[in-house]
Design a protein around this nucleic acid. Structure first.
Length: 731
DNA sequence: GCCCTGCCGGTTTTT
DNA sequence: CCGGCAGGGC
């Protein structure tokens, strides 16, 4: 075995990495080396031949995390792992449905709807059904549909007790019918459809259940109900599910994430205790103390405490700095001043982050930074594939492979303007309605009449594109779509500065050049039309991966983002702003069940982003929606022990209710070097009866020791080294 | 077919 | 207060 793989892992990490092939839940605290554990375990499974590239499934939530894993794995494993089922939930569902599109009842060139596309379809649907926005808001229908799907419910199984519900269910059904007819699949549908195929096709189910003997899941606390059921179905009875997550960092309940899946996993898979990764390699001691103390106020926890690595037992670092400003403007000036000073001290700009609870708060900060000439970068806003010019270009490309897409037709039939106005479009829609045709088919029908000159121009344009696409590679096809459509000329001639849009369209060609289609799909996809496969794959990718959510590029700049967006990132210095009651925790959250605890977890995420220095700030008076609001300091600031915080403002103190002082040190570095009769915490051992397990606790007993060992499915045993026959396993 | 005005809404967001 | 969007006017 390649022993260098396991080098440098601490006992907890080692225990997780080398966990026997059985279900496990790893509670990975912030900065505890979670991604490393996940990738090292995969590498270890491959290296020890417990699994092959073919028999492992690894699931993440974001494309970024998937790429990071793929990348790190590439450095650990001497051969290509591109064929591995490693990707986001939705990416893997997409792969599955491309392969099994026939069993799923989908056309081979089915298209993926992103949330914006989905909303357009819904608006179109409601218009067609003559339901006014005031009667049923498109957004609430969208929410209802996605929610139902994420709970595994089709319209057919939903019961309607009242008028409003009946309408929702009917619209849901109509929406699904429309999508089916046009070959459209939304995000939730990707999950639900693949789940249903697995459920109803025993041969497919058995194939995957036998094939995957290891299923690894990242950010497990963020899974929703359907994703959990999906995982269980793929795992079957035999696959070892290895889930990594942190209940304290569960901040997406508002969009369906169910932390309860963590305890459900333990129950359903017979996991006795989670493996805890509690050694934090990121932050100094005072920051960990603040985080630990704060989160201890939550009752709904699996329980976990971050601690320093042994070798830095005394590294408390600087205290947190709290600034209570009179107004949000003064707070912003404070951030600017301190950030500049920090950069003077030698910290790179992009190693300094300014975090806030809601996007609206970035405005004041931006103004102050701009005025001071401090470079900054805001995360948030439009992403590359969500930009209108890109959406237009993609719609042309869709028409090349799947002209039944009415959404695409409506988007580009008069973009750039070619004299086809609302009246003409209505006429096309009427024909489509009468003859039960797609808009494209209706257009073909109408184009037989010479008087419809303008429609004929459009039809010929698209047909031309369709023909050209057959002989061109992907990037050339994109180029052809841009040329034929006249989009670039349109933006050149339109008034205002459209250079950025034109640049983006050029960038789309570069993206097409760099695009590498999913090899697994290309190999297994039994599509009749191999010519257009790369294009369909490119379009799917555009929906699944909307691109970086970031403005600007390049030069060193201060990082501004919401706390949500900061999850998973780390910085030398962090400014946590707007720590006021009503804002953080937000008033909205307090009205919801469990809302306060989720806000506290959000605060916990925010605190644990900082490595060396953490600023907390609040403003007494803040301009919101054009009105002055006065607020008290957030309760979360009060929950941080006084002795790790330094108050910077002289007049107004951190103040208010008396602060609890910490009674016992919260950071107890437990030494992994400590030997308990020759055994160490986290070490893997084999027992002739119980199999392989990990030492999770130990105490001295004379010259012998009592060891608490987790044998996975065989339970946790307390054994005395004097009597038990234990054999050391692994590195 | 485009532009302008008036109104509404206003946590967090990935896929 | 400010931005997005829909609908009406030209």
């Amino acid at each position: 075995m390649d022993t260098s793989l396991l080098k440098g892992l601490n006992a907890e990490q080692l225990a997780a990495v080398t966990w026997p092939p059985a279900a496990a839940l790893v509670l990975a605290g912030a900065g505890s080396g979670k991604t490393r554990v996940l990738t090292t375990r995969i590498a270890w499974l491959l290296d020890t031949e417990q699994a092959s590239v073919h028999s492992i499934m690894a699931v993440t939530f974001t494309n970024k995390a998937a790429k990071e894993m793929q990348h790190r794995l590439g450095e650990m494993v001497p051969y290509s792992t591109r064929a591995m089922w490693l990707g986001t939930f939705h990416g893997l569902c997409h792969r599955f449905l491309r392969i099994h599109y026939q069993d799923a009842g989908l056309p081979s060139a089915f298209q993926i709807l992103d949330s914006g596309d989905q909303l357009s379809v819904i608006k179109r649907l409601l218009k067609g059904l003559n339901i006014a926005d005031e009667v049923l808001a498109p957004k609430s229908l969208q929410y209802f549909i996605n929610n139902s799907k994420e709970n595994g419910q089709r319209a057919s199984v939903l019961s309607a007790n009242d008028v409003a519900m009946r309408q929702l269910v009917q619209c849901y059904q109509a929406y699904d019918d429309l999508c089916q007819q046009e070959g459209l699949v939304d995000f939730a549908e990707l999950m639900l459809r693949s789940y249903e195929v697995m459920q109803t096709h025993a041969n497919i189910r058995l194939h995957y259940q036998q094939r995957f003997n290891h299923i690894l899941v990242d950010e497990f606390q963020d899974t929703n109900n359907l994703q959990y059921r999906w995982l269980k179905l793929f795992a079957g009875d035999s696959a070892a599910v290895f889930a990594v997550g942190d209940d304290d960092q569960s901040i997406y309940a508002f969009r369906g994430a169910n932390v309860g899946n963590m305890s459900a996993l333990m129950r359903d898979f017979g996991i006795d205790a989670p493996i805890k990764l509690e050694v934090n390699y990121r932050s100094v001691g005072h920051i960990l103390t603040a985080a630990n103390t704060l989160i201890a106020n939550n009752e709904q926890r699996l329980g976990k405490n971050l601690r320093l690595p042994d070798e830095s037992a005394n590294a408390h670092g600087e205290k947190l700095r709290f600034y209570w400003a009179d107004t949000d403007f003064i707070e912003a000036d404070f951030v600017v001043k301190e950030a500049k000073a920090r950069v003077q001290e030698g910290v790179a700009f992009d190693n300094v982050a300014v975090l806030y609870r809601s996007n609206a708060q970035s405005r004041v900060l931006e103004q102050a930074l701009f005025a001071a000439g401090v470079p900054y970068k805001i995360y948030g806003g439009l992403r590359f594939y969500e930009r209108q010019e890109i959406k237009h270009a993609l719609a042309y490309l869709r028409m090349a492979v799947h002209p039944q897409d009415d959404n695409a037709v409506l988007r580009i039939i008069n973009m750039p303007p070619r004299g086809i106005g609302a009246r003409s479009i209505e006429a096309v829609q009427a024909v489509a309605q009468d003859l039960q045709l797609s808009l494209w088919e209706a257009l073909l029908h109408l184009a037989t009449e010479p008087k419809n000159r303008k429609l004929i121009v459009f039809v010929e344009l698209i047909q031309n594109l369709q023909i050209q696409a057959q002989g061109l590679d992907l990037a050339e096809t994109v180029q052809a779509a841009l040329n034929l459509s006249g989009l670039v000329e349109h933006y050149q001639n339109a008034k205002g500065d459209n250079q950025e849009r034109i640049d983006n369209l050029q960038e789309l060609i570069s993206a097409a050049m760099a695009f590498k289609p999913d090899e697994v799909v290309l190999d297994e996809w039994a599509s009749p039309d191999t010519e257009t496969l790369p294009l369909v794959a490119f379009l799917s990718n555009a929906s699944l991966e909307a691109g970086e959510r970031q403005a600007g590029e390049g030069e060193a700049a201060l990082q501004l983002m919401t706390v949500h967006a900061a999850k998973g990132l780390e910085f030398d210095t962090v400014f946590l702003t707007g720590l006021e009651e009503g804002l953080f925790p937000s008033d909205y959250s307090l009205q919801e069940r469990g809302g306060l605890e989720e806000e506290r977890r959000l605060m916990y995420v925010a605190i644990t982003r900082a490595r060396q220095r953490l600023y907390l700030s609040a403003a007494q008076q803040r301009l919101l929606h054009g009105q002055s609001h006065y607020a008290m300091v957030s309760r979360f600031v009060q929950e941080i022990p006084e002795d790790v915080v330094q108050a910077l403002s002289s007049g107004l103190k951190r103040a208010q209710p008396s602060l609890k002082t910490r009674e016992e040190p919260l950071i107890k570095a437990k030494s992994k070097q400590d030997s308990f009769a020759g055994f160490a915490l986290g070490q893997n051992v084999r027992h002739e009866k119980f199999g392989v397990g990990v030492i999770i606790d130990a105490s001295h007993k004379g010259e012998h020791a009592n060891l608490k060992i987790n044998f996975g499915k065989n339970g946790i045993k307390e054994l005395n080294t004097q009597f038990a026959k234990l054999e050391r396993v692994g590195g």
